[in-house]
Design a protein around this nucleic acid. Sequence first.
DNA 1: GAGTGGTCTAGACCACACG
DNA 2: GTGTGGTCTAGACCACTCT
Lengths: 237, 237
Amino acid sequence: MSTIPAHKRIRDDLVAQIESGVLGGRERLPGEVDIAAQYGVTRMTVRQALSGLVNDGLLVRRRGVGTFIATNAAQRRNMNRLVGFTEDMRAAGRTVETRILAQLIVPATSDIADALELTVGVHVTHVGRLRIVDGTPVIIQHSWVPCELCPDLWSEPLIDDSLYATLRDRYGIVLRRADQRIAADAATGERASLFGVPARSPLLRVERVALDDRNLPVEVARSWTRPGYEIATHIER
Amino acid sequence: MSTIPAHKRIRDDLVAQIESGVLGGRERLPGEVDIAAQYGVTRMTVRQALSGLVNDGLLVRRRGVGTFIATNAAQRRNMNRLVGFTEDMRAAGRTVETRILAQLIVPATSDIADALELTVGVHVTHVGRLRIVDGTPVIIQHSWVPCELCPDLWSEPLIDDSLYATLRDRYGIVLRRADQRIAADAATGERASLFGVPARSPLLRVERVALDDRNLPVEVARSWTRPGYEIATHIER
DNA sequence: GAGTGGTCTAGACCACACG
DNA sequence: GTGTGGTCTAGACCACTCT
């Protein structure tokens, strides 16, 4: 039985209240001393909890005034958080269908091996998916994960169509950090036809390396997003 | 006379050492207690400094092991930091030329007014620039700033071609946060010819609202980046 | 066992915004 | 002046990694 740190509990409570709409708009939170009293902790612990949310763009602090829910905080859920596509869309109330494009073991190419800190040719599981939101194909996702970490990933269906849920629930792997590179690509014929858009349409390409809590690289992902869809980010300080 | 907080000094020292190459690779930092002793502060203060850098993706912490410089930390300088294009490129040793496309006062359109929390038609200064790095046109940047904040911006040359340097040094405005939306666009004829690429080439479009330290919106920016260039981001937790 | 980072306490003083 | 967040101290105990 592991104990959940107090600051994490406070943070999760606030996120839940923001996502459920209990807190919204530009509402003011109680002062840090009040929250501290409410949870029976020190102000420093409260600040630790709030800082994470400020960093994610969910809260805004103003010295001498107070701490406020950021405008559109509920819609910014995904901004700087490492959340799988499924969880994110479902939380937003969307219907997500998934078409599996690939699910098999392949030898790591040099770029994949490089990102995962493996040697070329080591076995990795390749999962390719087309995600369809409310009937519209929105994103093509290809992921590569070392077979060593998830031996049966290639042969068993994903839990809830979600790779991240599968890694977490079946293999105990929790992702903590990711580095991403974002660029614009012209749609190849194949990708254009998956999306049902003209060839050479502009697509967002995201390449991601995700690491677990021991900073071991777990997943390399490469995705293309349908024209018209956006990525939101938040920069603090 | 303003005093610089200790954690900021520690952070800036480390950033300088990383950027100058004194610290690099996956080098280990001294332990938190050692750094604390070195600066004559508490461990909590050191942790405050380090946390910011971990969040920016420059450092990696491993419990029971130590704190390390992230791989490619020097190249990730810009990842999650609110830095102007000029500063960023110059720090990377690139030559930046700037062609001014527009510098004038215009009435705020509804989308600009919305983002800046003004009423439609209020005067804003529009600055449009084409940035040329090592001879290649790389980014088209359009910014809108309320005239109230910077009355002479339209008529005076920018300091060092940098809008952010001008806002800081001439008007005392320091940017603290930004929300960005990233998408892929097909190049219009005009933008294609500025870049010297075929029409309908895929471009990265970034729309940004930047806020100052009092959380007042200062700048709306809309930029397009030449095909082949990327944006890097880091997600923590 | 020794050393590291993760969490937390119980205070303190300061800078700032607002009435 | 009052209340807010910003910074900081001087400890403490814990979980984890490595040897």
